[in-house]
Simulated scan of single mutants.
Amino acid sequence: MQIDLSGKTALVTGSTAGIGLAIASGLANAGAQVTITGRRQDKLDNALASIEQTSGRTDIRGIVADPGTAEGCQALTGACPDVDILVNNLGIYGAQPFFDIADDDWDHILEVNVMSAVRLARHYARGMADRGWGRIQFISSESALNIPSEMVHYGVSKAALQGLSRGLAKVLAGTGVTVNTILPGPTRTEGAVAMLQEMASERGVSMAEMETLFLEENRPSTLIKRFADPVEVASLCVYAASPQASATTGSALRVEGGIVESIA
């Protein structure tokens, strides 16, 4: 299959590292003119250099903004008023006992993980519908279906994205705009590696042993028995953004290594 996104513009939030950076690189490699976002200029510059090196593209754009706030979303849409492909990748997570999750913690994770996606989708979907073509993706998680007891608020925020995606797909029915969620499982991002390194140090085991232990203890139903690579997640995102995926909408597309105990 040859995916060609030439002539299309794309915006990927939270894209200076990890899954977001891999998605931006994948879209650029497929021919899209990509805009990435980050809160720090130095990280943005590093990400731009990485994408340009892997894709050979020199038209990649970076915008310093924090879409995790209403003001940041407004600044971003002002600097980038229209796109054909929107990937809402921005998200935060962190283990926290349920009884210690204060109202402010709930507000913060919902503001960043859910409301950033709501605001950007609300802005960009109108133009996509007017033009009769568009792709909106929400990067959710298998934690939306398997709510983790160690971070209930995170799982709830990702479950909210599932509802948002399905509802927006109905709103945009017949417009030529597709809306889907992508559900990664444990993925070897910089944040995940740092977490595993800390856990390995605490338990006196190697990184490889810690990865195995983490999956056995926290995601025992995994079928691939390993963390995914960000590129593996990005590959599904690039397909979902392609013309070939025009009949796929309102769906939860899983790239979680078979963790979810369901065949539907």
Score class of each variant (00 low, 15 high):
Ala47Phe: 13
Gln244Arg: 14
Gln33His: 00
Ile263Val: 12
Gly91Lys: 02
Arg57Val: 08
Ala75Pro: 14
Ala125Trp: 11
Lys8Pro: 06
Ala228Tyr: 13
Arg126Lys: 14
Ala208Lys: 14
Ser157Phe: 11
Gly250Glu: 03
Glu211Asn: 08
Ile60Glu: 01
Ala30Gly: 06
Asp82Thr: 03
Leu223Lys: 15
Glu256Lys: 15
Glu142Phe: 15
Ser141Ile: 04
Thr16Ile: 05
Ile36Trp: 03
Leu27Trp: 07
Ala102Phe: 11
Pro230Ile: 08
Ala264Gln: 12
Ser165Met: 02
Ser25His: 15
Thr175Leu: 10
Asp107Pro: 10
Pro243Thr: 09
Ile19Tyr: 15
Gly14Tyr: 12
Ala194Arg: 00
Arg219Pro: 04
Trp133Asp: 00
Ile224Pro: 00
Asp130Cys: 03
Pro220Cys: 06
Ile63Tyr: 07
Ala28Met: 05
Gly78Val: 01
Gly176Gln: 07
Val12Lys: 08
Gly250Arg: 04
Ala173Pro: 12
Val34Gly: 08
Ala70Phe: 15
Gly134Ala: 08
Glu190Asn: 06
Ser6Ile: 11
Gln53Val: 03
Val193Thr: 02
Ala194Met: 09
Ala65Thr: 01
Leu5Phe: 09
Val177His: 11
Leu196Ala: 00
Thr178Pro: 03
Asn218Asp: 09
Ile63His: 06
Arg254Asp: 13
Ala241Ile: 07
Asn113Val: 00
Leu27Val: 01
Val238Arg: 11
Met210Thr: 02
Val64Leu: 02
